[in-house]
Design a protein around this nucleic acid. Structure first.
Lengths: 106, 106
DNA sequence: TTGACAGGCAAGTGTTTGCTTGCATAACGT
DNA sequence: ACGTTATGCAAGCAAACACTTGCCTGTCAA
């Protein structure tokens, strides 16, 4: 489920946002995605993405009065890192040049 | 496209197979997936998965007489590794125990 | 040259995905 | 108490996805 959850760019942007500031409410995430990431997704769309992330175990939710705060749970990302491990040796020869390329074209 | 390509478990299994032995023909990949990975996908299904992997830039194809040999191109996986980078510090505290857990439950 | 082998191409199908729309609910401020 | 804020829930919908089916195309070997 983790890989599928990461397939959507909006969901990856949500995770990125949560690393930036953990424990955000839904509308908070919405407005920050709109301004910082340039994504104009609706509240319901983001909410459903958060459901997917929660089902995948990448995010946890806690009720706090009026708000529902979402926090990152990065543990399962180690699964991705683990899958990536055998490949790391294969690209590492050209890693420097690619990293430079990505640096120039983000 | 890379993240979407990795979302499907069959496609990840194909990549795993190609690391094991690079430059395989289509039917070769099919039979190896069936035996080693326990996946009973048809020739056309695997072919379409390879199309996706090729479009994502993770695999390259070369015609060699009767066969079409598929080879891994791991460079773009560095993109995933790069995205993962900021998260690595977050889970690393508990990395040892999780890695052990995944080791015991592959 | 004919048959077997390796694979392409295209249309069709059932499910999933990402998103919207509309209405409901629960907590807070005044 | 009442309106506002923050969110849930459920149905609907178009597009994408994973896969199948059926037929066609090259390549090699006898």
């Amino acid at each position: 489920m983790v890989f599928k959850a990461l397939a959507d760019p909006t969901r990856r942007a949500i995770l990125d946002e949560l690393t930036d500031r953990n424990g955000q409410a839904l509308l908070e995430i919405c407005s920050r995605l709109a301004t910082k990431h340039g994504l104009g997704s609706s509240r319901q769309a983001i909410s459903q993405h958060l459901d997917v992330l929660q089902a995948a175990g990448l995010v946890e939710m806690s009720r706090e009065g009026k708000w529902r705060l979402y926090a990152l749970r990065p543990e399962l990302l180690a699964e991705v890192d683990r899958w990536l491990k055998p490949y790391r040796a294969l690209w590492s020869r050209r890693l420097d040049t690619l990293e430079q390329h990505l640096e120039e074209n983000p």
